[in-house]
Amino acid sequence: MNQNEPDTGKSGDVAPGDTGDIGTSVRNYLIGLVLAAGLTAASFWVAGGTSLIYAPGVAMGLAALAIGQMGVHLVFFLHITTGPDNTNNVLALAFGVLIVGIVIAGSLWIMYHLNGNMMVPSQIMDMHLQH
């Protein structure tokens, strides 16, 4: 292979971050920027306290917006897509998401039950005072 040529499009795979022609690429980045900015603004708006959302649902709403924005970043900035040329990247991402989910959800689950089940009443009082 010629070392001076960018070797895109010649194989069946693409690297994360690989892009097509420049007009389409700029347009994709712009779409990503607008979507991400919109989702960020929505997050700050929801967190600022709005009467449109049932208050205990705010955390869920924020989580949904954050996950949506991460998806926007992955697709429009890192160019992780579901195309046949992207299978390796998507599979690696799926494994990463699995581990991240296990670590975060598992930690919260375990610590919640530790707090709930394994304390004598006086310590529970201490925990309440700390809150």
């Binding site: 070797d7 010649k10 194989s11 690297a15 991402l93 990463g96 581990i99 991240v100 670590v103």
Partner: peptide
């Protein structure tokens, strides 16, 4: 695969491991 693909994939694996670090 061309080196660009291999490099990008390897770096993507590193980034995912970084995400796992942050998840902790």
């Amino acid at each position: 695969a061309p080196k660009r693909i291999v490099t990008g994939y390897g770096f993507w694996i590193f980034l995912l491991s970084d995400f796992i670090l942050f998840s902790g």
